[in-house]
Protein backbone atom coordinates (compact mmCIF):
# COMPACT_ATOMS: atom_id res chain seq x y z
CA UNK A 1 0.00 0.00 0.00
CA UNK A 2 2.83 2.32 0.92
CA UNK A 3 4.41 1.55 -2.39
CA UNK A 4 1.54 2.69 -4.46
CA UNK A 5 1.59 6.26 -3.21
CA UNK A 6 4.92 7.40 -4.65
CA UNK A 7 4.30 5.60 -7.86
CA UNK A 8 1.03 7.39 -8.37
CA UNK A 9 2.83 10.68 -7.80
CA UNK A 10 5.35 9.73 -10.43
CA UNK A 11 2.61 8.75 -12.78
CA UNK A 12 0.84 12.00 -12.15
CA UNK A 13 4.05 13.89 -12.87
CA UNK A 14 4.62 11.92 -16.03
CA UNK A 15 1.16 12.55 -17.35
CA UNK A 16 1.24 16.24 -16.58
CA UNK A 17 4.52 16.51 -18.48
CA UNK A 18 3.08 14.89 -21.54
CA UNK A 19 0.24 17.33 -21.88
CA UNK A 20 2.05 20.28 -23.37
CA UNK A 21 -0.04 23.30 -24.25
CA UNK A 22 -0.96 23.27 -27.92
CA UNK A 23 0.91 25.59 -30.22
CA UNK A 24 -1.15 28.71 -30.69
CA UNK A 25 1.04 31.44 -32.08
CA UNK A 26 4.30 31.67 -33.97
CA UNK A 27 6.09 34.84 -33.03
CA UNK A 28 8.68 35.89 -35.57
CA UNK A 29 11.26 38.60 -35.13
CA UNK A 30 11.38 41.20 -37.84
CA UNK A 31 14.99 40.20 -38.42
CA UNK A 32 13.99 36.65 -39.27
CA UNK A 33 11.21 37.89 -41.56
CA UNK A 34 13.62 40.10 -43.46
CA UNK A 35 16.24 37.38 -43.69
CA UNK A 36 13.74 34.87 -45.03
CA UNK A 37 12.45 37.30 -47.60
CA UNK A 38 15.93 38.31 -48.67
CA UNK A 39 17.05 34.74 -49.14
CA UNK A 40 13.92 33.66 -50.99
CA UNK A 41 13.86 36.65 -53.29
CA UNK A 42 17.52 36.55 -54.16
CA UNK A 43 17.35 33.04 -55.48
CA UNK A 44 14.22 33.35 -57.55
CA UNK A 45 13.13 31.38 -59.50
CA UNK A 46 14.78 28.48 -57.73
CA UNK A 47 13.25 27.44 -54.44
CA UNK A 48 15.34 27.63 -51.32
CA UNK A 49 15.18 26.53 -47.71
CA UNK A 50 16.76 27.48 -44.43
CA UNK A 51 16.74 26.76 -40.76
CA UNK A 52 14.70 28.61 -38.14
CA UNK A 53 16.20 29.24 -34.73
CA UNK A 54 14.34 30.28 -31.64
CA UNK A 55 12.66 29.26 -28.43
CA UNK A 56 9.66 27.20 -27.50
CA UNK A 57 7.80 29.04 -24.75
CA UNK A 58 4.54 27.47 -23.68
CA UNK A 59 1.97 27.88 -26.41
CA UNK A 60 4.13 30.38 -28.31
CA UNK A 61 6.94 29.40 -30.60
CA UNK A 62 9.41 32.24 -30.92
CA UNK A 63 11.47 32.44 -34.05
CA UNK A 64 14.31 34.80 -33.34
CA UNK A 65 16.76 34.09 -36.10
CA UNK A 66 17.37 31.93 -39.12
CA UNK A 67 20.04 31.01 -41.59
CA UNK A 68 19.88 29.91 -45.19
CA UNK A 69 20.91 26.54 -46.57
CA UNK A 70 23.03 26.41 -49.69
CA UNK A 71 21.18 25.16 -52.73
CA UNK A 72 21.09 21.41 -52.51
CA UNK A 73 22.89 19.31 -55.02
CA UNK A 74 22.53 15.64 -55.76
CA UNK A 75 26.00 14.70 -54.70
CA UNK A 76 26.89 12.76 -51.59
CA UNK A 77 30.07 14.65 -50.92
CA UNK A 78 28.28 17.94 -51.14
CA UNK A 79 25.49 16.62 -48.96
CA UNK A 80 27.97 15.81 -46.21
CA UNK A 81 29.33 19.27 -46.75
CA UNK A 82 25.85 20.65 -46.22
CA UNK A 83 25.56 18.91 -42.85
CA UNK A 84 28.92 20.33 -41.87
CA UNK A 85 27.79 23.74 -42.95
CA UNK A 86 24.77 23.47 -40.72
CA UNK A 87 26.77 22.49 -37.66
CA UNK A 88 29.35 25.16 -38.34
CA UNK A 89 26.71 27.82 -38.72
CA UNK A 90 24.96 26.79 -35.51
CA UNK A 91 28.26 26.83 -33.63
CA UNK A 92 29.17 30.25 -34.97
CA UNK A 93 25.81 31.73 -34.16
CA UNK A 94 25.92 30.36 -30.66
CA UNK A 95 29.18 32.17 -30.14
CA UNK A 96 27.44 35.50 -30.69
CA UNK A 97 24.60 34.53 -28.36
CA UNK A 98 21.97 33.75 -30.94
CA UNK A 99 19.35 31.25 -29.72
CA UNK A 100 20.60 28.03 -31.08
CA UNK A 101 17.58 25.89 -30.93
CA UNK A 102 16.16 24.55 -34.11
CA UNK A 103 12.44 25.18 -34.22
CA UNK A 104 11.75 24.33 -37.83
CA UNK A 105 12.60 25.50 -41.27
CA UNK A 106 11.48 27.94 -43.91
CA UNK A 107 11.07 27.53 -47.62
CA UNK A 108 10.03 29.53 -50.60
CA UNK A 109 7.25 28.37 -52.82
CA UNK A 110 5.88 29.04 -56.26
CA UNK A 111 2.25 30.16 -56.35
CA UNK A 112 1.63 28.36 -53.08
CA UNK A 113 2.40 24.92 -54.47
CA UNK A 114 4.01 23.64 -51.32
CA UNK A 115 1.71 20.81 -50.29
CA UNK A 116 3.83 17.91 -51.38
CA UNK A 117 4.85 14.56 -50.02
CA UNK A 118 8.39 15.90 -49.58
CA UNK A 119 7.10 18.55 -47.21
CA UNK A 120 5.45 15.88 -45.11
CA UNK A 121 8.61 13.79 -45.17
CA UNK A 122 10.67 16.75 -44.00
CA UNK A 123 8.14 17.38 -41.28
CA UNK A 124 8.39 13.82 -40.07
CA UNK A 125 12.19 14.05 -40.06
CA UNK A 126 12.16 17.22 -38.03
CA UNK A 127 9.48 15.93 -35.73
CA UNK A 128 11.70 13.04 -34.73
CA UNK A 129 14.15 15.41 -33.13
CA UNK A 130 12.08 18.37 -32.10
CA UNK A 131 8.76 17.96 -30.45
CA UNK A 132 7.41 21.17 -31.79
CA UNK A 133 8.38 22.51 -35.14
CA UNK A 134 6.87 24.71 -37.78
CA UNK A 135 7.47 25.36 -41.41
CA UNK A 136 7.30 28.91 -42.61
CA UNK A 137 6.35 29.24 -46.22
CA UNK A 138 7.05 32.40 -48.15
CA UNK A 139 5.60 33.03 -51.56
CA UNK A 140 7.57 35.63 -53.54
CA UNK A 141 5.13 35.67 -56.44
CA UNK A 142 2.24 36.54 -54.17
CA UNK A 143 4.31 39.11 -52.35
CA UNK A 144 4.83 40.92 -55.63
CA UNK A 145 1.13 41.74 -55.38
CA UNK A 146 1.75 43.74 -52.26
CA UNK A 147 0.88 41.15 -49.65
CA UNK A 148 3.23 39.78 -47.05
CA UNK A 149 2.75 36.16 -48.01
CA UNK A 150 4.10 34.37 -44.97
CA UNK A 151 2.46 31.27 -43.60
CA UNK A 152 3.32 29.12 -40.63
CA UNK A 153 2.31 25.51 -41.00
CA UNK A 154 2.42 22.32 -39.05
CA UNK A 155 1.00 18.86 -39.50
CA UNK A 156 -1.94 17.95 -37.34
CA UNK A 157 -1.30 15.31 -34.71
CA UNK A 158 -3.92 12.91 -35.99
CA UNK A 159 -2.45 13.05 -39.47
CA UNK A 160 1.03 12.43 -38.13
CA UNK A 161 -0.14 9.33 -36.26
CA UNK A 162 -1.63 7.89 -39.38
CA UNK A 163 1.35 8.78 -41.48
CA UNK A 164 3.79 7.22 -39.08
CA UNK A 165 1.92 3.93 -39.25
CA UNK A 166 1.36 4.31 -42.96
CA UNK A 167 -2.33 3.76 -42.52
CA UNK A 168 -3.94 5.45 -45.40
CA UNK A 169 -6.78 3.17 -46.18
CA UNK A 170 -10.23 4.57 -46.52
CA UNK A 171 -11.39 2.68 -43.48
CA UNK A 172 -8.78 4.16 -41.15
CA UNK A 173 -9.40 7.64 -42.44
CA UNK A 174 -13.09 7.28 -41.84
CA UNK A 175 -12.44 5.89 -38.39
CA UNK A 176 -10.34 8.91 -37.50
CA UNK A 177 -12.69 11.22 -39.31
CA UNK A 178 -9.75 12.82 -41.10
CA UNK A 179 -10.51 14.73 -44.25
CA UNK A 180 -8.15 16.60 -46.53
CA UNK A 181 -8.57 19.83 -44.57
CA UNK A 182 -6.99 18.20 -41.55
CA UNK A 183 -3.53 17.56 -42.94
CA UNK A 184 -2.03 20.95 -42.38
CA UNK A 185 -2.77 23.36 -39.65
CA UNK A 186 -2.02 27.02 -40.18
CA UNK A 187 -0.79 28.83 -37.13
CA UNK A 188 -1.28 32.57 -36.78
CA UNK A 189 1.88 34.61 -37.08
CA UNK A 190 2.85 37.43 -34.81
CA UNK A 191 5.73 39.73 -35.63
CA UNK A 192 7.83 41.19 -32.89
CA UNK A 193 10.72 43.61 -33.03
CA UNK A 194 13.26 44.63 -30.47
CA UNK A 195 12.65 48.10 -29.10
CA UNK A 196 15.93 49.16 -30.63
CA UNK A 197 15.05 48.04 -34.12
CA UNK A 198 11.63 49.59 -33.91
CA UNK A 199 13.17 52.89 -32.81
CA UNK A 200 15.48 52.85 -35.82
CA UNK A 201 12.68 52.05 -38.21
CA UNK A 202 10.47 54.80 -36.83
CA UNK A 203 13.35 57.26 -37.26
CA UNK A 204 14.22 56.10 -40.73
CA UNK A 205 10.79 55.65 -42.19
CA UNK A 206 10.77 57.87 -45.23
CA UNK A 207 8.42 60.80 -45.27
CA UNK A 208 6.97 59.73 -48.58
CA UNK A 209 3.27 59.10 -48.31
CA UNK A 210 3.35 56.37 -50.94
CA UNK A 211 5.30 53.20 -50.37
CA UNK A 212 6.49 50.47 -52.65
CA UNK A 213 3.81 48.12 -51.38
CA UNK A 214 1.13 50.61 -52.39
CA UNK A 215 2.44 50.62 -55.94
CA UNK A 216 2.45 46.84 -55.92
CA UNK A 217 -1.08 46.68 -54.64
CA UNK A 218 -2.48 49.17 -57.10
CA UNK A 219 -0.92 47.63 -60.18
CA UNK A 220 -3.67 46.93 -62.64
CA UNK A 221 -2.11 43.99 -64.40
CA UNK A 222 -2.78 40.72 -62.68
CA UNK A 223 -3.08 38.63 -65.80
CA UNK A 224 0.30 36.83 -65.59
CA UNK A 225 -0.29 35.84 -62.00
CA UNK A 226 -3.80 34.66 -62.72
CA UNK A 227 -2.73 32.74 -65.78
CA UNK A 228 -0.11 30.81 -63.90
CA UNK A 229 -2.49 30.17 -61.08
CA UNK A 230 -4.99 28.71 -63.51
CA UNK A 231 -2.33 26.63 -65.21
CA UNK A 232 -1.36 25.13 -61.88
CA UNK A 233 -5.00 24.56 -61.07
CA UNK A 234 -5.60 22.71 -64.31
CA UNK A 235 -2.55 20.53 -63.75
CA UNK A 236 -3.81 19.67 -60.32
CA UNK A 237 -7.25 18.82 -61.62
CA UNK A 238 -5.67 16.41 -64.06
CA UNK A 239 -3.66 14.82 -61.29
CA UNK A 240 -6.75 14.49 -59.19
CA UNK A 241 -8.72 12.79 -61.91
CA UNK A 242 -5.80 10.40 -62.43
CA UNK A 243 -5.88 9.60 -58.74
CA UNK A 244 -9.59 9.03 -58.87
CA UNK A 245 -9.18 6.69 -61.79
CA UNK A 246 -6.75 4.75 -59.68
CA UNK A 247 -9.39 4.38 -56.99
CA UNK A 248 -12.06 3.40 -59.43
CA UNK A 249 -9.77 0.76 -60.80
CA UNK A 250 -9.15 -0.49 -57.29
CA UNK A 251 -12.83 -0.65 -56.44
CA UNK A 252 -13.64 -2.39 -59.66
CA UNK A 253 -10.98 -4.98 -58.96
CA UNK A 254 -12.22 -5.34 -55.45
CA UNK A 255 -15.78 -5.98 -56.41
CA UNK A 256 -14.69 -8.42 -59.14
CA UNK A 257 -12.64 -10.30 -56.60
CA UNK A 258 -15.52 -10.40 -54.18
CA UNK A 259 -17.74 -11.83 -56.86
CA UNK A 260 -15.13 -14.46 -57.64
CA UNK A 261 -14.86 -15.34 -54.00
CA UNK A 262 -18.60 -15.71 -53.76
CA UNK A 263 -18.82 -18.08 -56.70
CA UNK A 264 -15.91 -20.10 -55.36
CA UNK A 265 -17.58 -20.33 -51.97
CA UNK A 266 -20.83 -21.42 -53.53
CA UNK A 267 -19.06 -24.14 -55.43
CA UNK A 268 -17.22 -25.30 -52.35
CA UNK A 269 -20.45 -25.45 -50.34
CA UNK A 270 -22.18 -27.51 -52.94
CA UNK A 271 -19.15 -29.78 -52.98
CA UNK A 272 -19.16 -30.02 -49.19
CA UNK A 273 -22.82 -30.88 -49.21
CA UNK A 274 -22.08 -33.70 -51.59
CA UNK A 275 -19.17 -34.88 -49.45
CA UNK A 276 -21.34 -34.79 -46.33
CA UNK A 277 -23.93 -36.89 -48.07
CA UNK A 278 -21.15 -39.32 -48.98
CA UNK A 279 -19.97 -39.28 -45.33
CA UNK A 280 -16.63 -37.61 -46.02
CA UNK A 281 -14.86 -34.78 -44.12
CA UNK A 282 -15.95 -31.38 -45.51
CA UNK A 283 -13.23 -29.25 -47.15
CA UNK A 284 -12.34 -25.90 -45.46
CA UNK A 285 -14.28 -22.90 -46.68
CA UNK A 286 -11.12 -20.93 -47.20
CA UNK A 287 -8.16 -21.47 -49.41
CA UNK A 288 -5.30 -19.04 -48.86
CA UNK A 289 -3.33 -20.53 -51.73
CA UNK A 290 -5.98 -19.49 -54.23
CA UNK A 291 -5.04 -16.19 -55.93
CA UNK A 292 -8.56 -14.84 -55.64
CA UNK A 293 -8.16 -14.65 -51.86
CA UNK A 294 -5.06 -12.51 -52.05
CA UNK A 295 -6.01 -9.08 -50.70
CA UNK A 296 -5.66 -6.25 -53.19
CA UNK A 297 -3.57 -3.41 -51.89
CA UNK A 298 -5.58 -0.27 -51.44
CA UNK A 299 -3.79 2.72 -52.93
CA UNK A 300 -2.74 5.37 -50.42
CA UNK A 301 -4.95 8.36 -50.16
CA UNK A 302 -2.22 10.80 -49.22
CA UNK A 303 -1.66 11.94 -52.76
CA UNK A 304 -5.24 12.68 -53.51
CA UNK A 305 -5.58 14.47 -50.18
CA UNK A 306 -2.59 16.61 -50.93
CA UNK A 307 -3.80 17.43 -54.40
CA UNK A 308 -7.17 18.40 -52.99
CA UNK A 309 -5.45 20.69 -50.53
CA UNK A 310 -3.46 22.19 -53.35
CA UNK A 311 -6.54 22.83 -55.43
CA UNK A 312 -8.39 24.52 -52.64
CA UNK A 313 -5.32 26.66 -52.09
CA UNK A 314 -5.33 27.77 -55.73
CA UNK A 315 -9.03 28.49 -55.56
CA UNK A 316 -8.50 30.70 -52.54
CA UNK A 317 -5.71 32.52 -54.29
CA UNK A 318 -7.79 33.09 -57.38
CA UNK A 319 -10.63 34.38 -55.25
CA UNK A 320 -8.31 36.70 -53.36
CA UNK A 321 -6.71 38.17 -56.43
CA UNK A 322 -10.02 38.51 -58.19
CA UNK A 323 -11.47 40.46 -55.29
CA UNK A 324 -8.47 42.74 -55.32
CA UNK A 325 -8.89 43.18 -59.05
CA UNK A 326 -12.49 44.20 -58.58
CA UNK A 327 -11.41 46.83 -56.15
CA UNK A 328 -8.83 48.16 -58.53
CA UNK A 329 -11.17 48.16 -61.47
CA UNK A 330 -13.86 50.10 -59.67
CA UNK A 331 -11.22 52.53 -58.46
CA UNK A 332 -10.08 52.93 -62.04
CA UNK A 333 -13.62 53.53 -63.16
CA UNK A 334 -14.14 56.19 -60.54
CA UNK A 335 -10.93 57.90 -61.58
CA UNK A 336 -11.93 57.84 -65.20
CA UNK A 337 -15.31 59.31 -64.53
CA UNK A 338 -13.74 62.24 -62.74
Amino acid sequence: MANTMPRSFLQAAATSEEVAPPLRVVQIEGLAVLKIIKHCNEFLPSLVTGQLLGLDVGSVLEVTNCFPFPIREEDEEIEADGANYQLEMMRCLREVNVDNNTVGWYQSTLMGSFQTVELIETFMNYQENIRRCVCIVYDPSRSAQGVLALKALKLTDSFMDLYRNNNFTGEKLREKNLSWVDIFEEIPIKVSNSALASAFMTELEPELPVKQCDYDRLKLSTAPYMERNLEFLIDCMEDLSAEQNKFQYYYRNLSRQQAQQQTWLQKRRVENMARKAAGEEPLPEEDPANPIFKPILEPSRVDSYLITNQISNYCNQINGVATQSFNRLYLMKALHED
Binding site: V33, I37, L148, N193, A197, T202, E205, K211
Partner: peptide, 9 residues
Protein backbone atom coordinates in the same frame (compact mmCIF):
# COMPACT_ATOMS: atom_id res chain seq x y z
CA UNK B 1 8.75 49.11 -47.80
CA UNK B 2 7.59 45.90 -49.39
CA UNK B 3 7.22 44.22 -46.05
CA UNK B 4 5.59 47.31 -44.70
CA UNK B 5 6.92 49.73 -42.14
CA UNK B 6 3.80 49.14 -40.11
CA UNK B 7 5.10 45.71 -39.31
CA UNK B 8 8.71 46.62 -38.72
CA UNK B 9 8.12 49.80 -36.77
Amino acid sequence: ERVGFDILK
